[in-house]
Structure formats: structure tokens, C-alpha cells
């Protein structure tokens, strides 16, 4: 049954209870439109990886329904899988195989003959900057290269839906930005992308829509723009001339010192900045530059899930 609907992914009442009775998903509903760049956010153990696991068949759902481009996985999971490419969180390729062999083999599992697969493998290895390493054992690749290899592997059968589970975890900022550019390109070419990440700056920069999942439930599902609008506070970083040892408190302007020459202040959106500047001027403090704290989304996220994102609560079921 191949009926194309507007949604790349449609999840209804999806629930998962593991054998140890841990309820990872408590009946979530989620829709991702074709062509979307969608972020699935949540603290560790919230149910993100379980959701991805069900999409790619590594986790068996307890109840609910899931359609991929209109194909119900209960009806024809094999057909639905043709549309999905997955980049998992952990390296899960054979470290003794060469990148070229990993890609051609993966294509073979999708029924792509070796000559076509080899051509595609060359294309993606070049696009992702791995060409020079195509013929060495993959265990000799750097962490960033291994991540890119997993992206190439997920794309080898040219899926219409690409699911990435924290693809830039542990990747340096330069490489992260080049990966962002690559993902934006393939999204522009029509591939729907679902991304889970802990770098909320990443979600804010790349994604149009977002769902926040916490304790197995969707607590927010909207556009990134709408989410940002809900933010009633903005945090600014102020770089000052010279150094100070302390700063007087100002009513309504909670100032904190990041270090001796940097201040941070969280200001309600409807408040004027003039009073703050007047006060600092009176204190003899000269501001030489000011910027938004990058992670606006992080503030909202913390509000919604009531947790510190740096807390490392690893669930063994995820």
C-alpha cells in the first residue's frame, strides 16, 4: 500500500513499556510534514531514542500507530523502511571494515546493486569529506569522521526521511557547522529531517518545527518561531572595559558576573535597557560590547521540563 500523504511521519498514541516495566512512551502523538526540518528535544531518558527506535524498527512498540509517508508500519514495515535513513547516537558500524565496504554493503541491504551502490558511495564519501579515507579500516577514522560516515551510510539508499539521533555530539564546532550546512543542503533538496540534539542552538538554527518530550509525553509541539515567542526573558552577555571584583544589585535586573570582565543579565522582554546602562555608567563601568546569550531555546526548555540540561541522567532503557 503506497499512499503518499502530506506527512512524512504520523504517530498516534504511541506507547512503549520495556520488559522491566519502565514506561518510556506514554501515548505520544506527533506529525512531521514532508520537507520539514524537525527537532525532537528532551532530557536524557525522556523517550527520544525510544521514539527513533520505533521509527527504525529497533524498538517494538507496545501500542499506538506509526505511519511513514502514509505507510502503516503494522501493514508493511519493509516498504516503510525504504523511506527511512537513520543516524544513531553510538557508532554502530563494523570498525574492521573500510568505509567504502560499509556503504556498499548497507546499500545492498536495501537491494541496491553493487555498481550503483559504489557510485553513490563515492558521491557521499566525497560530499562528506571522507574520500581520502575510503579504503582504510574505519577504526582509524577520527570521531568526527565516524559521525560523517554514519550520515553517508544513512543516505546511501537516498531516503526521503532522515532521522539523526544527536549527530553532532562530541564534534568540534567547525565540523559541527559544516555538518549543519550539509544537512541544510539535503533538506533544501527535499529530504525531511528529524533531529534530536542536546545542543539547542543547533535546533534553533536548523529546525522549523519542534517537539519537546519529557517523561514519555510530548509537552510542546510547535514551530521554533512560536516557541521563541513564548520566551518572556532574554539573557544578554555584556563585555566591560577593564576588570571589576563585584557589582551592586539593581532591582529588576539580576546581574551576575561571568568573570572579572563579563557580566550576564536576564531581562524581561518588556523592560527597558536604559536603566541598566544608566546604573552601570554611574558605577563607572564601561560596556564595550553586548550580545544575546546563544541558547534562547535552552531557557525555555529548562522551564518546560524543569531540569538542567547538563544533568547527565542516562536511562539504561534508552
Amino acid at each position: 500500500m503506497k499512499t503518499f500523504e502530506n506527512n512524512a511521519l504520523q504517530i498516534k498514541g504511541l506507547a512503549k513499556t520495556y520488559d522491566n516495566s519502565f514506561q518510556a512512551l506514554k501515548g505520544i502523538d506527533l506529525e512531521v510534514s514532508q520537507g520539514d526540518f524537525f527537532a525532537l528535544l528532551g532530557p536524557n531518558g525522556a523517550g527520544k531514542s525510544t521514539t527513533i527506535g520505533v521509527i527504525c524498527s529497533l524498538v517494538r512498540k507496545t501500542s499506538g500507530s506509526l505511519k511513514i509517508f502514509g505507510i502503516d508500519i503494522d501493514q508493511d514495515f519493509s516498504a516503510a523502511k525504504q523511506y527511512v535513513g537513520v543516524v544513531p547516537q553510538e557508532f554502530n558500524f563494523n570498525q574492521f571494515e573500510k568505509p567504502i565496504d560499509i556503504l556498499v554493503t548497507q546499500a545492498g541491504y536495501y537491494g541496491i546493486p553493487a555498481p550503483v551502490a559504489t557510485e553513490r558511495a563515492y558521491k557521499y564519501l566525497k560530499l562528506l569529506g571522507l574520500w581520502e579515507k575510503h579504503d582504510v579500516p574505519s577504526r582509524s577514522l577520527s570521531g568526527g569522521m565516524k559521525r560523517r560516515l554514519m550520515i553517508a551510510r544513512a543516505l546511501i539508499h537516498e531516503p526521503k526521511l532522515l532521522v539523526l539521533d544527536e549527530p553532532t555530539a562530541g564534534v568540534d564546532i567547525e565540523l559541527r557547522r559544516s555538518m549543519w550546512g550539509f544537512l541544510e543542503d539535503i533538506n533544501r533538496q527535499g529530504t525531511t529531517i528529524i533531529l534530536t540534539t542536546h545542543y539547542l542552538e543547533e535546533a534553533e538554527r536548523l529546525c522549523r518545527n519542534v517537539a519537546i518530550i519529557d517523561k514519555g509525553k510530548i509537552v510542546q509541539n510547535t514551530s521554533v518561531k512560536n516557541l521563541i515567542k513564548q520566551l518572556n526573558k532574554e539573557t544578554f552577555i555584556l563585555d566591560i572595559k577593564g576588570e571589576i571584583n563585584d557589582i551592586d544589585a539593581i532591582d529588576g535586573y539580576p546581574l551576575t558576573m561571568v568573570d572579572n570582565s563579563t557580566l550576564e543579565v536576564a531581562i524581561d522582554k518588556d523592560k527597558s535597557l536604559n536603566q541598566l546602562f544608566n546604573h552601570l555608567t554611574n558605577e563607572g563601568i564601561e560596556i564595550i560590547s553586548m550580545r544575546n546569550k546563544a541558547n534562547r531555546l535552552e531557557e525555555l526548555f529548562i522551564d518546560m521540563v524543569g531540569k538542567n540540561l547538563t544533568a547527565d541522567e542516562v536511562s539504561e532503557d534508552e
Binding site: 514495515f77 554502530n92 563494523n94 554493503t105 541491504y109 551510510r153
Partner: peptide, 17 residues
């Protein structure tokens, strides 16, 4: 070995029966 390295997942996520 494939299970241990998790690369059995390459096959499991594919449509191969």
C-alpha cells in the same frame, strides 16, 4: 560480533526480510 558491535542494526533497520 555484529550484535556486540551493534552493526547488526544495519541489517535490522533495512527492509531485508
Amino acid at each position: 560480533g555484529s550484535k556486540f558491535q551493534s552493526n547488526i542494526e544495519e541489517l535490522l533497520v533495512s527492509p531485508t526480510p
